[in-house]
Structure formats: structure tokens, C-alpha cells
Write a protein that binds this DNA or RNA. Structure first.
Lengths: 336, 336
DNA sequence: TTGAAAGCGCTAACAG
DNA sequence: CTGTTAGCGCTTTCAA
């Protein structure tokens, strides 16, 4: 079945039906420019009667605005994604805009669909876009906001992220000061991901502050990924890792740790404690409930949209938005 | 910062640079109509040199195709959403199309943005769209595929869903035949959701087949929602519900049940068993691991996109795609 | 195999 | 406050 082209009604039909010009209809629809109440009423009636819907493409062409914003991610994966998307979606629709989503899947250069021609602006999540492309877009003045990623030097692209370093630092402080741990293993995230970088720095800073020597043997790759974390921890167990607690750089990898530990018949936290980062929805319901650092993911996403809209409008925005993180103590760290 | 309009290069510049007409450039880009190899080469070179990107809006206006498909959901929520979106996104991008997402948030009539003017077709998830709007879109011949929802009578809109009734039926069969339960409580989903309907029918059919009288007291509202399920089960507990097992109509509500049961200090499965439906990613890691019915959510989403693309192209598609579900036995049902 | 030219439906000056 | 009109950048006949 095909679209029934003959029945498509345009702004012209609406104008005729209402007995006004297309310009007036346009003004009514877009609330741009003055229109008499009577004219407006007639237009609304016509729109209703004809069931008129403006054509987005024509609108975009004529106005050079798409009324859509794009969200660029690497891939649809992980618990992290849900609150992020919820935040973005809510904020976008609150402004009556459309949301385009595209996953770049690593570095697959073969043209990502979103960009300067299909959206008014882009939210670039973490490492979803190579730096060169960010540079290109910035050069042509295309509105962007970076989410969980900082601006390349001297470019001053607004970014919003959370206090990764601080959160990790406080977590390790807690582990050392309140729980008395000294042998703290760290399961780091992907190099390309700035969150991963800062969380590790926070971990190291806390160690240093407590005069605990940094031991590379206590660091392995978690990759912000359940399967990867699982694998790494299984290897650790085989090699007889001697740690009192594992700090997984995100909750997804913490889940992988849990599985690996259970397979090895190690009890959490009796045999080895575990903490994560993010506070995903299910962290509280895991077995045992996961001690973690809460990151305001949804809020960050919402703010990113707000910033982006401002940039699109040409308004000033703060360059860096840093959202606070918060320790959430549950059973997995051995506190209870 | 604003877009730098002056530097925008269009098909005209490309044509000039390549020394051909815009029509030829268009033919090369879209691989429509014959072009000599030399001309094509010149065009490609020009595109490369000028870093040309076609304007989506202009394209859409001229061709009456947007090259985008829309996904309509009620809201971004629940574990269910992630695999669904992953399936849709992968399939969409595999076809080089754009993906638009919009949440309708219940019945908020105030114009949902996606529709016949911004996409080539729509995937309508469950009860995201009121029947009247589906009717309207169908009437104008707009391509649609329904996901987890069947076509209104006589409309023959393709739909893809899973074997809800069969899955629920087999779950209850298992509970009765293998585990020997007779008092099986059911936490049903929202009325508006077809999955909810069929799962309940499956439950009832199995009871009937085993000569177990249907007891309305053993049915409460879970709403496919953790908080709602939590509430309902807490009430049950207060009222002294006497069931051997609770069948939550989806895993999200099963999580709510778990929490409520733990609060009441009832052990799963020793004091009361629990099973769910969907097999979300974390079902295996809950405490205890959740027995459930696996639904191929991601696959269903992928198929929906494939169907939709066919409809858009005017090809024939099967009206109903029913994907099999599968029992996944874990500890929460008392099997081990 | 190619080019000229007519729109696609809408917005935004501009003139009244 | 309102209408006229010139495009927006591209696709697609139609002729050549």
C-alpha cells in the first residue's frame, strides 16, 4: 500500500479554506508576527477541519531549521543508556522538538547519518564521534554539546559531565577510612572514555592521600562491560588475586564481577567486597545490593539538551557543567 | 555561535566544480539513472573536494521521502526498552536510514511529532498510539508496523509480537505439573497492553486444563511496573495472601514482587515462589535468579523494521509475525 | 547519457 | 495586521 498523495493537504488548502493567505497561516502556526484573532480562529478551524499537518521537510528547507536534535551514541548498550535516553527524550519533547538517534558503533567511518543537515544540533555522547569530526562540525559552527566528554583544547564546546574523579576519590576514601581496606583492586573502563580516565585518577589520588602505594597488579580491564569484567576477574581469581575489595569502574562491570566471583564461589562481601559506579536502577536489587557512586545520569542528559537548545538559539552557555556524585552505601562493600 | 551559512555548499556548487549539471550530480548520489563513468568520477571528486553533504530537508521535499523511520513508544522506561531499541537501531542503520524516536506519554494528545510528514513509516509499540490515530494513518496509506500489538479488525496492518499466551500457558503448566503448585497468584499487566491480555489468558487456560478453578482473589494488578507490583504484593501480604507462587506478568513487576516479599521477610522460593516474563538481562542476577519466559525482544524489533521497510517499498509482507517464547528455569520457582 | 527547468510545501522579507 | 512573492536545495520529468 502506498501513500495516497492526492489527499495530501498543504498550507495552500488551509489558506483557501480559511480565506486568508498562506503567510497568515504560517504566522498562526508558528506564532510569528501579528495576526488578528478572527483570522487566527479561521485558520485554526481550517486546520482542524482539514486535519492539516505541516510538512517538516518543507519547513526545514524554508526556515533552515529542522526542529530536531540528534543524539549520537556509540551503541545501544548497558544500563547507563536508559536514564540517559529518558532525560534526553523528555527534554527534547518538552521543547516540541524531534529526537534523532544514531549509534556510531565504534569508528565505523561510513557516514553516520546525523549531522549538520538533518538536525539543528547534536548531543555527542562520550566517544561516539572521532575528534576530527567534532572539529569539522565546530569549524562550520554547528551547535553541539558534549555529554560525558570534555571539549578538545581551545575549542570551547560546552560539555556536561559528572564529578567522576571526585566520586571515585570519595569512594576509595570511604573504603580506606571507614572500612579499613588497603588492598583495593580497580577494574578500569575503556581508555577512550573520559569517565574511565577520571575515575581511575580519583582512585589513584585517594591511594596516594592514604599512603597506599599504587600497585598495577591490582588494576585490570573492565571495559564498562559486564562480559569483559567477568573475564578479567576470572583471570584474577585463577592467578590468586589478593584484594580485599574490587572497585569496578561502572555498575555494568560490577555485575560482571559478581558473576565471576559467584562462579569462583567467593562470597561478597565476606571473601571479597565489591563496589561500583553509576547506581543503575538494579544496583539495589542485586545480590548483595551494590555499594556504588550515584551519577545523575538523567539529569545530565536533560541539562545537555537545555544547553544545546541555548546554543542553537545563539545564547550564551557555561562551558563546563559538572554534576555532583554521591556515595550510596549498600551491603556489597561489607558495611553491614 | 551560529551556523556559518555562507560556507554551505549545495548541489549547485558540486555541479559547477565537476562541470556537469545538478541532475547528473543527483543521479550519481542516488544511483538513479545512467551516468557515464567519467562524469561519475568527476562528481565523486567534487563531492570529496568540497566536502559536500546533501541537505536532508531539500531531498525530502523533492522526493517525498524522508529516509527516516519513526519509533513510537509510550515512554522510555523499563528493562524491556533497551533490547527493543537496540534491535530497531541496528536494523534501521543497516539500511542507511535515520531513526526518530518519540514517546507519547500516555494519551497526551498534544501532537506527537512523528508521523506522515517526518518519517517514511512508523513502528508503533504497544499502546503508544490511540486506535483513532492508527486508523487515520492507515486511511491515508501511511506505512506502519505494530510491535507488541495486533491490528485493529479489518485493517490488516502488519504486526510482530511474541507468543504471549503460549509462553504464559507453558509457564503455568510447568508450575503445576513439575512443581506441583495449585495456588498460583497472577500479577497482571495494564489492560491497554495486549501482552498483558494474552499472558493472562494463557494463565487461565492452563488453570482450566488442570482443573484448577480460577480464583479472582489470586489476581492483582502489577501494571508491568516495579512500583505498582511492589504495592500490590504488599497489600496481598497484609491481607494474608495464601499462594504458593506468584506469576508476575513481566520481569519488571517481578522485581517489585521481590522487593515487597523481602520487606515482608518472606523467602523466595522457600516461603513463596516467584516467576516472571520477558527474561530481561538482569533476571539471571537477581536474588534469587528469576525463573521466567524468554521473549525475543530484540529480534522482534529487528523484524518489525524489516517489515516496515518492505511496506514502505510497497512489497508484500506477512500480516502477523509471532515469535516463539521459551521457558527459562532458575531458582526463584523453587526448582533447585 | 545529459541538461533545463518545474516544482516539492513552506517561511520570510517586503510592501501595503 | 495582511498578502505577494521569492526562494530554500534537491529530485525528476521532459527533451535533446
Amino acid at each position: 500500500m502506498h501513500m495516497d498523495d492526492s489527499s495530501r493537504i498543504t498550507i495552500v488548502e488551509v489558506a483557501q479554506y480559511a480565506g486568508v493567505s498562506t503567510a497568515t497561516v504560517s504566522r498562526v502556526i508558528n506564532k510569528t508576527g501579528p495576526v488578528s484573532p478572527e483570522a487566527a480562529a479561521k485558520v485554526y478551524a481550517a486546520i482542524e477541519a482539514l486535519n492539516y499537518r505541516p510538512n517538516a521537510a518543507a519547513r526545514g528547507l524554508a526556515s533552515r531549521r529542522t526542529n530536531a536534535i540528534g543524539l549520537l551514541i556509540d551503541e545501544v548498550n548497558g544500563e547507563f543508556f536508559l536514564p540517559m535516553l529518558r532525560g534526553v527524550e523528555n527534554a527534547v519533547r518538552q521543547r516540541g522538538m524531534d529526537l534523532l538517534i544514531s549509534a556510531t558503533h565504534g569508528l565505523d567511518k561510513t557516514s553516520y547519518p546525523l549531522g549538520e543537515n538533518s538536525t539543528d544540533g547534536l548531543i555527542v555522547f562520550a566517544d561516539s564521534l572521532p575528534k576530527e569530526e567534532i572539529l569539522r562540525l565546530h569549524k562550520i559552527g554547528f551547535p553541539m554539546v558534549l555529554l560525558y566528554r570534555s571539549s578538545p583544547p581551545n575549542l570551547s564546546i560546552p560539555c556536561v559531565t559528572v564529578e567522576n574523579k571526585d566520586g571515585a576519590r570519595r569512594m576509595v576514601d570511604y573504603l580506606v577510612e571507614k572500612r579499613g581496606y588497603r588492598k583495593i583492586a580497580f577494574l578500569e573502563g575503556p581508555d577512550s572514555h573520559e569517565d574511565a580516565y577520571w575515575r581511575k585518577i580519583g582512585y589513584q589520588e585517594s591511594l596516594a592521600a592514604h599512603n597506599i602505594p599504587f600497585d598495577p597488579k591490582l588494576v585490570s580491564f573492565g571495559g564498562f562491560d559486564e562480559a569483559q569484567a567477568h573475564l578479567s576477574v576470572s583471570r584474577w581469581v585463577e592467578q590468586g588475586l589478593k584484594a580485599e575489595v574490587i572497585f569496578a569502574a561502572d555498575d555494568d562491570s560490577a555485575i560482571g564481577v559478581m558473576i565471576a566471583l559467584k562462579e569462583a564461589e567467593l562470597r561478597i562481601p565476606e571473601d571479597i567486597a565489591l563496589v561500583g559506579f553509576d547506581d543503575i536502577r538494579l544496583a539495589a536489587y542485586l545480590d548483595p545490593p551494590l555499594t556504588t557512586v550515584r551519577a545523575p545520569i538523567e539529569q545530565a542528559a536533560r541539562i545537555a539538551v537545555e544547553q544545546l537548545v541555548k546554543v542553537i538559539r545563539g545564547e550564551e552557555v557555561g562551558l563546563i557543567t559538572l554534576l555532583p556524585t554521591e556515595l550510596v552505601i549498600r551491603r556489597s562493600c561489607g558495611c553491614c
